[in-house]
Amino acid sequence: MSPAQPTRRDFLYIATGTVAALGGVATLVPLISQMNPDASTIAAGAPVEVDLSPVTEGQGIKVFWRGKPIYINHRTKKEIDEARSVDVADLRDPQTDDARVKSGHDQWLVVIGICTHLGCVPLDHQGDYDGFFCPCHGSQYDSSGRIRRGPAPLNLVVPPYEFLSDSKIRIG
């Protein structure tokens, strides 16, 4: 057997093995991809419009966007003042109230009602800070939805939204 032969044979084996391995990996693509959100789920995650006119001062409503509860609170003057009088530097997740609402619509707090600890839904208008209280592990958020006490690391998330008019918002 000449020395050239094993080389050619080895090349054939490596080429075959490589092509087969590539095919095996490519086969995983559909098997993994199928678990991602399907087209109907993505389409159902489109923005939702919410009419705020029925929500009076001091009231809050809960709507759903992408399956997540969204708290929309019509804050009282007291609640706004409380949120603004806090020394931001003392907060666990420092953020001003201004940064969490739309300017000119200071009375409206819109947050995703999912505790940043482990995903439970906090109760609205509960706890020591006129905000939210998570019954699972005792996290407390203030009237701006910022974390004040308990195990949660971050403030309640503000979803993307915009005011279409003074009494109508679009979330998403």
Partner: peptide, 24 residues
């Protein structure tokens, strides 16, 4: 993972697989 074994929904869920699920 995508099919629904119910007389009212099985047919539709198969079509859902065909149309919407990635590589369904």
């Amino acid at each position: 993972m995508h099919y629904t074994p119910h007389a009212d929904m099985a047919f539709n869920s198969v079509e859902h697989i065909m149309r919407d699920v990635n590589y369904g």
